[in-house]
Amino acid sequence: MRFGVVVFPGSNCDYDCYYVVRDLLGEEVDFIWHKERRVEGFDCLILPGGFSYGDYLRTGAIARFSPIMRAVSGFAARGGLVIGICNGFQILLESNLLPGAMMKNKNLRFICRFVNIRVENNLTSFTNLCQIGQVLKVPIAHIDGSYYADHEIIGTLKENNQIIFRYCNEEGGLAQESNPNGSKDFIAGISNRQGNVLGLMPHPERASESILGSEDGRLIFESVVRAVKGRVK
């Protein structure tokens, strides 16, 4: 299968994603410059972390108008798999490919450390190798990561099982101190209603081999491979 990693000016986790796909998964992967207008031949697109357009105005607000985003929207509408990680998640929110918005972390600090997230839904193309309630150790690195959506949107997310990951403690419990940024309802990652677009603040690509302190993140990429290869058969 073939992954595409979209590169915006200011992306800085693009190579990490590329490395995970090529070297750890052994799958095909290409970079896609944000000025491109086509995304043919890809099974999954990754919008990586970073500071696209310097986070000017709002995180993701300018990148959302990059030429590639029209193609990404079309790809998603046709059921293509899209993962937005950190800044990639912020871009998906600004693009309305996912509901809600990001606000500054509650403590106003840039937080860069391992956190625990709990798998809330494993019937997705991104979590099919996980167990419900499984705790993954994956790092976050952001200052604008406090997920916000109004009561109505949160209700819809719950109703459709679109909350994919929640911040939790080591045991999987939802304690206030395990919510690093003050996200609504402990939300660390959500999908769209159709389940083919995932956005998450933690960086699974930084936790995909044991030398980095955790390989839990690789489950997400391997789930994608499993979903795509299973679909082809």
């Binding site: 105005l57 709002r58 607000a61 300018i62 600004e94 809600g100 606000m103 916000y148 959506a149």
Partner: peptide, 8 residues
Amino acid sequence: KLLVNPII
């Protein structure tokens, strides 16, 4: 379109 995010 751009300057304001009406969600927040």
